[in-house]
C-alpha cells in the first residue's frame, strides 16, 4: 500500500488532504449504551471510523485457571469486521495485529480499573471495528473508556487516546488512513486526563527527541477536546430524560 513512488503530498499550504490543519482532530461523535445486553457499551464515529465497544462483567472468570483470587482479570478483544475497509474483503477474527492491539488496550485499562474490588471475576472488553479509516486503536480505547464508565465499573480515571504522526517535517495529530500509509512516523498514545499518566505509547518511523516531546504536548491538547466529547456522551442520556419531563413538570 505505502508506495513511495506515487506518494501524495500530505500537506499543502499548511492544510492536509482533508482540509484539516496539523493540530485539528477529525469530527468525533460518541453514543453511550447502544448494546442492550452489555453491562456498558459505546459507539464512536471518529472521522470515517465506526467502532463499537461493549463491556461484560464483572462476572466469574472462566475458564477457572484464569481467575486471580486477589483481583478481577481484564480480558480484551479488538477485531475488525471483514467489510470494514475500502479495500478487499478481510478475514474475520484475530490476526497478529489484532492480538497485539488487544493486549496493549487491556494494559491501558488494567491501570485504571479498581480490579481489587472483584476477586475471582473477569471484566471483558470487546472492541469491534465496523469501519476503519486509520487510528482505530486510539478510537477503540477512547470508546471502550466510555463503555466502562457507562457500566459503572469503578475507575481511577477515564483515559482517552489519539495518535500523532509526521508528514514531511510537520507533526500532525490524528492521522487518517492515507496519512498513516505515507507518513514518516506514527505514535498512538493513551493518557489519563486527571493524572496525566501515559497508559499506552507505541511509535514507529522516525522522530527527534524534540518531536516526541512536542507530539506528546499536541496529544494532551487534543485530549481536552476528546475528553469533553466522552463526558458529554455519558451525561447526555440523563439530561435527555430530564428534557422529556421538563414540559410536564
Amino acid at each position: 500500500m505505502g508506495n513511495s513512488a506515487n506518494k501524495p503530498e500530505l500537506i499543502i499550504d499548511g492544510r492536509r488532504l482533508d482540509g484539516r490543519t496539523p493540530e485539528q482532530l477529525r469530527q468525533i461523535k460518541i453514543t453511550a449504551n447502544p448494546i442492550r445486553n452489555a453491562a456498558g457499551s459505546a459507539f464512536i464515529e471518529w472521522g470515517n471510523n465506526k467502532i463499537l465497544a461493549a463491556v461484560y462483567g464483572p462476572r466469574e472468570a472462566l475458564p477457572k485457571h484464569t481467575q486471580d483470587p486477589n483481583r478481577a482479570v481484564i480480558k480484551c478483544r479488538y477485531t475488525m469486521a471483514p467489510f470494514s475497509s475500502l479495500e478487499e474483503h478481510g478475514r474475520p477474527g484475530m490476526n497478529r495485529r489484532a492480538i497485539e492491539i488487544s493486549k496493549v488496550t487491556r494494559e491501558v485499562f488494567e491501570n485504571v480499573i479498581l480490579t481489587d474490588l472483584f476477586p475471582g471475576n473477569e471484566i471483558s472488553i470487546f472492541i469491534e471495528v465496523l469501519q476503519s479509516d486509520g487510528g482505530t486503536r486510539a478510537a477503540g480505547i477512547t470508546c471502550a473508556s466510555v463503555a466502562l464508565a457507562a457500566s459503572g465499573i469503578p475507575m481511577r480515571d477515564m483515559p482517552f487516546a489519539v495518535s500523532v504522526g509526521k508528514a514531511s517535517d510537520t507533526l500532525i495529530i490524528d492521522m487518517n488512513k492515507i496519512e498513516d500509509n505515507y507518513s514518516n512516523a506514527d505514535m498512538p498514545v493513551a493518557i489519563n486526563p486527571r493524572t496525566k499518566e501515559i497508559n499506552l505509547l507505541q511509535m514507529d518511523g522516525e522522530l527527534t527527541p524534540e518531536e516526541v516531546h512536542r507530539g506528546l504536548e499536541m496529544i494532551q491538547k487534543a485530549g481536552e477536546t476528546i475528553t469533553k466529547i466522552q463526558r458529554e456522551a455519558l451525561k447526555a442520556p440523563y439530561e435527555k430524560v430530564n428534557e422529556k419531563y421538563k414540559a410536564s413538570i
Partner: peptide, 26 residues
Amino acid sequence: GKIPNAEGSAEINLGNTKVLVGIKMD
C-alpha cells in the same frame, strides 16, 4: 448504508436484536 466503505450495508433492529450486514465484492 451505515458502512460506506463496504459495497453495501444494512443494520436491522428487530425488537432488541441488532444485526449489521456488510457486502464486499472482490
